[in-house]
């Protein structure tokens, strides 16, 4: 009896230490390896031939245009998404209407559905042989699928929840008294929104927008279906990298990967910095 008791006390005093260090090191090593490997591999491979060969491969017309298309489609999506996402979050928080719960759940659909399936759905809705796609082409002479509008549309689908889910909680926690005070003092609802609500939700809008931008920049599954992969016209950077890997042109794949990854990393760090600044001020 006496002996077992001393044994257990010994055990409880030593195992926590071991568990503590075991947990810490397994978590940190696992995380470092997983995060660092891609960064190291792409940096080394991208700069393997020296800075000039890196420069040459990213300034080749097809590569340059792919990076450019990725950036402008993602940026356009981000702007639309920040407006429509904020509006959606506003409507969801402020108003009661039939179907509100449905809308609120539907918004997460892009998180749940495989992006490749999104691409398939979009070509079936807007493809040149479909009623809607054909009509738009006849009326406006504009192709949606196999062209850049299709890319923007796929990215809008993908990015829709980001701004909403960032803005929604902030809107819900806003002090209603401030808005009421503004009304009482004779401010119009637009003025109230601009001067009271907007400044409060702007950081969340930017965070959500930046996250959707970073996510959109690397998007592959939906775009490879929707864009038709026409070099210089509808080929994004991720699709370009895929093509170069498939054809064994690894130097070109690595260089464009390095550019894409650098932008993604900078965006993540910026989001983190903004979040930190916000909590520091609050």
């Amino acid at each position: 009896m006496m002996q077992t008791r001393t044994l257990t006390t010994l055990n409880t005093s030593r195992t926590p230490q071991m568990i503590f260090w075991g947990v810490r090191w397994s978590a940190l090593i696992y995380l470092s390896v997983l995060i660092a490997l891609p960064l190291i591999v792409i940096s080394v491979e991208g700069l393997r031939g020296g800075i000039w060969s890196f420069w040459d491969s990213i300034t080749r017309p097809a590569a340059l245009s792919a990076i450019f298309i990725s950036v402008w489609t993602a940026a356009l999506m981000t702007v639309i998404n920040m407006i429509m996402g904020t509006l959606t979050a506003y409507v969801l928080v402020q108003y009661r209407f039939p179907g509100k719960r449905w809308l609120d759940s539907l918004i997460d659909l892009p998180f749940a559905i495989p992006t490749l399936v999104t691409g398939v759905m979009l070509i079936l809705l807007y493809g040149p042989q479909t009623p809607i796609g054909g009509w738009i082409e006849d009326q406006f002479g504009m192709r949606i699928v196999f062209s850049s509008p299709g890319i923007v549309l796929a990215l809008l689908f993908l990015g829709y929840p980001f701004v909403i889910r960032a803005v929604q909680p902030v809107l819900a926690s806003l002090d209603i008294h401030q808005q009421e005070a503004a009304y009482t003092l004779g401010a119009s609802s637009w003025l109230t929104f601009r001067r009271i609500v907007f400044p409060a939700i702007l950081p969340a809008m930017i965070t959500g927008g930046l996250l959707s931008f970073a996510r959109a920049l690397g998007e592959f599954g939906s775009i490879v279906i929707v864009s038709g992969n026409i070099p210089m016209r509808s080929q994004t950077a991720a699709v370009y990298i895929y093509g170069q890997v498939e054809s064994g042109n690894l130097a070109a794949a690595s260089s464009v990967s390095l550019v894409l990854m650098a932008i993604a990393l900078l965006t993540t760090l910026l989001v983190d910095y903004l979040a930190r600044r916000r909590t520091a001020h609050a």
Binding site: P38, I42, A214, F220, V239, I241, V245, A264
Partner: peptide, 29 residues
């Protein structure tokens, strides 16, 4: 621990790196 802020910031990286690049890194390795 030292570097906690950095780890905290980069946890989201897999979320924004293009999946094509992730697959490519595996092949390179």
């Amino acid at each position: 621990f030292w570097g906690k802020r950095f780890f905290n910031a980069v946890v989201d990286l897999p979320f924004v790196v293009s999946p094509v690049i992730v697959g490519y890194v595996l092949i390179v390795l």
